[in-house]
């Protein structure tokens, strides 16, 4: 790698400190504001709260419907990710391990989905879910996320499988193992690292998604976290202490998980979007 003199290293180090401060400050701002009164936010923007006002948290949690929203976000994300893992790994397994007519065409058909933002096709999705009575439904969201998660997940898993030798599976087949046994007993354990990447990438994007819930969910009891905060933001636009609390409560779980697993997140998301 580059060999730099001591002085340039110090300058670069300082620049990274500045950059880190620019990233951290917005989060710090909402944390500090979440403990202040409205008056303190206006009059003493840079000072620490005079006392920790935990009542902001209680008030926000109830008014912003966050308990329900957390449950919905959790259910939708978990079941979507599980669904994606199952259907995509089965599909990728077939694409990578078996020969059949039109295999290449089928593969290109699926990865074509990598090249278009799925949200552009929202009108027919909206109409279809409406006609199926799946608007305002967690199941509707889950099915949609499973469908839109397929191209990326199949692409990643298929490529991962392609790099693994298939001798083991071939001998298992000669011994009379069914494709199902080969898949669950041999292939799945081998692709575990890729499954982790697929799970993380999809989980983050589904957990954070705002666009689909905005259009497909209008019932407050079905809101996910970003939608609940957005609705709260519209209703309490002047209550900065409560808005800050809501924003902080919405981002803190992701930040905690990230703090423990940043390496997995980073390797997953960069190779994910990019392989």
């Amino acid at each position: 790698m580059l060999k730099l003199g001591k002085n340039s290293k110090i300058i670069i180090f300082i620049l990274f400190i500045v950059y880190s401060i620019i990233i951290i400050t917005p989060f710090l701002n909402i944390v500090i504001n979440s403990f202040k009164t409205l008056g303190e936010i206006f009059l003493a923007p840079f000072s620490l709260p005079s006392q920790l006002r935990w009542e902001n948290y209680k008030e926000t949690w109830n008014k912003a419907n966050l308990g329900m929203a957390y449950l919905n976000s959790f259910l939708v994300s978990i079941f979507s990710v599980l669904g994606i893992l199952i259907i995509s790994s089965m599909f990728a397994f077939i694409l990578s391990r078996y020969t059949f007519p039109l295999r290449k065409v089928l593969y290109l058909y699926v990865i074509a989905g990598l090249a278009f933002p799925a949200r552009l096709a929202i009108i027919p999705i909206f109409i279809m879910l409406r006609d199926l009575k799946l608007l305002n439904s967690r199941i509707g969201l889950i099915l949609l996320y499973m469908g839109t998660g397929v191209p990326f997940s199949v692409f990643l898993l298929k490529n991962f499988l392609d790099d693994i030798p298939k001798e083991l599976e071939e001998s298992a087949q000669i011994d009379g193992a069914s494709p199902w046994m080969i898949f669950t007993n041999i292939a799945l354990p081998l692709i575990r690292p890729a499954l982790v990447v697929v799970a993380i990438v999809n989980f983050v994007s589904i957990w954070n998604d705002f666009f689909f819930p905005l259009i497909l969910i209008s019932d407050r009891s079905k809101e996910t976290i970003p939608l609940a905060v957005s609705v709260f933001y519209g209703e309490f636009s002047n209550q900065w202490h409560l808005l800050s609390t809501a924003l902080w409560l919405a981002v803190v779980p992701v930040m905690v998980i990230y703090a423990f697993m940043s390496r997995e997140f980073i390797s997953g998301m960069t190779q994910g979007a990019f392989k």
Binding site: F91, G113, P124, M128, G147, V150, V154
Partner: peptide, 14 residues
């Protein structure tokens, strides 16, 4: 399963 969901939620809507 994957082909079906992908087709109805990505290809068909386009």
């Amino acid at each position: 399963p994957a082909l079906f969901l992908y087709t109805i939620f990505v290809i068909y809507p386009f």
